[in-house]
């Protein structure tokens, strides 16, 4: 039996509390939570690369691959099992990342950002050009089953929230360990100074490569869950503005903690849905000011609210 540290125990507790809360929450909130946490997984992929100093403006690529794997698995191959569909997406994304990673890990900074964006837009173009896949209209995702159990219409959203929470928790626990393990720490070292890492006798490129493939897998999982929740997929998932949104959420949360993307995705979803409701004509502006405000006042993201408390607490004791 693995020993769990306090952070992990707290993450588990938070997931259980949220799942229990989902049981009494109204339907729209269950859906909002599902979507927010599914997106948070994609954001985790962005954050993983940010820790290594790379900003991907094309994470939508793997989000889209995950989503389309789920959609196509159901539409064309008659697969309905959730676990199979999600794994198919993760696998497809990893294979793609293994190929693209060979090229992409040669680039840094803005070139990495632009090239990842270009690949995402190429997928967008391919999908738009595929009438069998519904072109820009996309297509609907079939209802899912889990190990032979097919949930009723009323219970499906709650069941999917539970699945999303379990997946999110698993990823969070893994990432928590990953960040603390050698590879994770080295990724930060690459961000700080790549040449010094080379002097240690390590290959930064190999580190970034494995990190890139792992990030793709996590993002594809998020994409698959989003597709299952929304029940529809379209090429917009690979469009650069979608990827921009993930970077937005990543910066909102900051890279300080594995839980930050979840918190940020939730805050983002809530701000957006209420902005759309109360100021339907200028909700984008509200989002813009929120982002600016966070950058100016909390440069390390929303999570610094908590780490500030931590610093204070440490000083007091």
């Amino acid at each position: 039996m693995m020993r769990l540290d306090r952070t992990e125990l707290c993450l588990i507790a938070a997931a259980v509390v949220l799942a229990a809360g989902g049981l009494i929450a109204p339907g729209w909130l269950v859906f909002l939570l599902t979507m927010a946490f599914a997106k948070a997984l994609v954001v985790q992929g962005v954050v993983m690369q940010m820790r290594a100093g790379l900003v991907s403006f094309g994470q939508g690529l793997f989000y889209c691959v995950g989503g389309y794997a789920v959609g196509m698995g159901g539409q064309f191959f008659g697969l309905t099992d959730l676990a199979v569909l999600l794994s198919a997406g993760v696998l497809a994304a990893m294979l793609l990342a293994m190929v693209l990673g060979l090229l992409l890990t040669r680039y840094r900074d803005i070139f990495f950002a632009m090239l990842s964006l270009a690949f995402s837009m190429i997928l967008f173009g391919v999908l738009v050009k595929s009438p069998q896949l519904g072109s820009t209209d996309g297509f609907n995702v079939v209802s899912w089953t889990l190990f032979g159990w097919s949930p009723a219409k009323e219970t499906a959203p709650m069941a999917l929230l539970t699945v999303t929470l379990v997946a999110g928790l698993a990823v969070a626990l893994l990432l928590h360990r990953y960040v603390q393990a050698g590879v994770g720490v080295l990724c930060e070292a690459v961000r700080e100074n790549e040449v010094r890492v080379e002097y240690l006798g390590l290959s930064p490129r190999w580190l970034l490569y494995s990190n890139y493939v792992a990030a793709a897998a996590v993002s594809a999982l998020g994409g698959g869950l989003t597709a299952l929740a929304a029940g529809h997929i379209d090429p917009e998932m690979a469009y650069w503005t979608t990827s921009g949104e993930f970077v937005f959420i990543a910066l909102l949360g900051g890279t300080g903690h594995v839980a930050a993307p979840f918190l940020a995705a939730l805050v983002f979803a809530v701000v957006r849905t209420y902005a759309i409701e109360f100021v339907p004509h200028s909700w984008q502006m509200i989002l813009g000011f929120t982002l600016l405000g966070v950058i100016v006042f909390l440069p390390k993201g929303l999570w610094s609210l908590f780490s500030r408390a931590k610093a204070k607490g440490a000083a007091a004791s």
Binding site: C10, A13, G21, A259
Partner: peptide, 16 residues
């Protein structure tokens, strides 16, 4: 950290 996380889950639950 535990305190922080407790605050986090409380915030999440409260906002929900």
């Amino acid at each position: 950290t535990r305190k922080t996380l407790r605050r986090l889950s409380l915030t999440m639950a409260a906002s929900a």
